[in-house]
Nucleic acid binder design. Structure first.
Length: 208
DNA sequence: TCATTAACACGGG
DNA sequence: CCCGTGTTAATGA
């Protein structure tokens, strides 16, 4: 595990920190579609992604959901950074988008490392900033853009995260994540297909 | 004007 | 047949 940690994070962390991480972190393999975190759950460790992707969703009391952003290799979850220090409950839901391998770091360690390793502090602050920007981008999209642009961003993000032009989702699933109805998604996808930007199959969308 | 909801027909697996 | 898809009509914001 150490060598893999070094290939992904060697440019960020010094040797002693890499060794500490490999000693303490719990290695996990998670298959696609697993719920890693639900709203209201307590956060007691911090995930670091080795590969794969995780989608972060907000959910209202009726269970309607809204996609916030994706976490990828080298990312960590910003919510844990705020939640775990104050022993607060999670405000978000996290589901693996792909088969994902990750390291879980206990809260106490992640806090002590903040004091001992500058590289760790930089990493945490940078991820926090990065997540915040991502969130702002999503807020802009929701607040100022119409559904067709939101759908386009969704398809682009999904393509980037999976590294695949083929997005395997039904119109209904897309509608849930964007918090709208299937009719709208079907209509917009059809329009985009006529414009030659995508190609539609059953259970799949080809981004061109 | 555009989203939502309900309803219906088509067709592929 | 069942489910995903495409479309329409009615209603509302």
């Amino acid at each position: 595990m150490y060598s893999e940690l070094e290939t992904h994070y060697g440019y960020l962390f010094e040797k002693e920190l890499l060794e500490e991480i490999s000693k303490i972190a719990i290695y996990k393999e998670v298959t696609k579609g697993t719920t890693l975190m639900s709203i209201g759950q307590y956060v007691k460790s911090m995930p670091i992604l080795l590969n794969g992707a995780i989608k972060i969703l907000r959910e209202d009391s009726e269970g309607d959901e809204l996609l916030l952003y994706f976490l990828e290799k080298g990312d960590t979850c910003a919510m844990t950074l705020t939640c775990c220090t104050g022993n607060k409950k999670s405000e978000i839901k996290a589901i693996t988008e792909l088969d994902t391998r990750l390291l879980m770091i206990p809260v106490e360690k992640m806090e002590t490392w903040l004091a001992t390793y500058k590289s760790w502090r930089d990493f945490v602050l940078n991820s926090y900033h990065h997540r915040f920007m991502e969130l702002l981008d999503t807020v802009d999209t929701i607040a100022f853009k119409k559904m067709d642009e939101r759908l386009l961003k969704y398809l682009k993000d999904k393509k980037a995260v999976t590294g695949n032009k083929v997005i395997k989702s039904t119109h209904q699933e897309i509608a849930y994540e964007l918090h709208t109805s299937r009719v709208v998604i079907s209509r917009l996808l059809k329009k985009m297909e006529q414009e030659g930007r995508i190609s539609l199959r059953r259970n799949a969308v080809y981004v061109l």
